[in-house]
Write a protein that binds this DNA or RNA. Sequence first.
DNA 1: ACTGTGAACTTAACGGTGTTAACCTAAGGT
DNA 2: ACCTTAGGTTAACACCGTTAAGTTCACAGT
Lengths: 195, 195
Amino acid sequence: MSLREEILDVSKELLLKHGFSKISMRKIAKKANVTATSIYLHFKNKDDLLLALVEESIANLNRVLRNTLDEAASPIEQLESLTDAYVGYAMENPQEYEIIYMVRPEEMPKYPREKFQQVREIYELLAGIIQRGKDRNLFDVEDPLVSAYTLWAQIHGVVSVILGKRLDTRVPIERFLDLATDHIIQGFIVQKTPA
Amino acid sequence: MSLREEILDVSKELLLKHGFSKISMRKIAKKANVTATSIYLHFKNKDDLLLALVEESIANLNRVLRNTLDEAASPIEQLESLTDAYVGYAMENPQEYEIIYMVRPEEMPKYPREKFQQVREIYELLAGIIQRGKDRNLFDVEDPLVSAYTLWAQIHGVVSVILGKRLDTRVPIERFLDLATDHIIQGFIVQKTPA
DNA sequence: ACTGTGAACTTAACGGTGTTAACCTAAGGT
DNA sequence: ACCTTAGGTTAACACCGTTAAGTTCACAGT
């Protein structure tokens, strides 16, 4: 295994074990039996290293989402199962999810766009589902691609509130998640106005 | 002005000007013409100081939300105007919003609950609106308090995606926000099933 | 008037951080 | 036999949050 991979491995291990705020180049280096400066031979800086981890984690999440997709199911069912899979993944792998969304490298905006191609692909998949639902008069959406983004943003909000430990302790997480996903899906389904 | 207030003032100024990642106890102290250690006479540590800023900003946001509430309006209108006010506040005061939600002091969970009483009050206000809408058969909700939390989480997700610069650059922010608020509100309104 | 106390503040230091410059070493190609 | 290059090192810089110890000074009690 190359040192680069080794560094990625131990970084992820430390991140998952001790959380984002506790990792440092020196600790990573120590765990890889190397000096901190060696990391700079393989990564531009700390942000660059973190970004590589973000990429990995995004790939994981994408794999999970793609695997849960049942081509034969109805658009509504597909939306529901994707939502559940997303939330489930975040709940079961909170640190991994945090790697994706909580880590905020300074120069993310100017980071090479190709790297986020995978993210786009997921959106287009989602947009496709929404488009098909719209065509069948199941979904009340104007613009499937934009709605794909709002759907994801809504779900992310729900998840991040829990992971950020900002949910009122009086509210049971399970109930919160159930009602949240209900409301979110509901917001996409056509309103059948009374005759 | 007491040193405590002075510290809060310059901290906020630095935070709004240079962002969260750039502030340090030493810089704050320098700007307040004081040594870094003096800060520790008024705040337990850096997190404690940041938490004080979070409190202030929450109070601001709450004031804005309360001011936009029109007692006479219908529950649907109230929900819409609160949503718009929330999003508007976040867009116009992005750093202030980040202070509230992006700052994640380690010990937030064990922070004295009374301090977040204001947050509760807003939820209860929101829950009241939802309850009234439910009573009038306008809203399709099971549990107004929990739904108040999911509503807020969804909106927060939408806002945080923009502030985190994670929205695809092909999607215009205004359109994204419009469709997002539409979907969110839609998700709370009763489905009138056809006769 | 003298003393004591406590608050506000400082200096100096500890152990940590990301990052860079300079250097070393071994392998491979010419 | 020489040069280049990849992969690694040591030492250092400038910062960080935080603490222990010391200073100054206003004011209360006797």
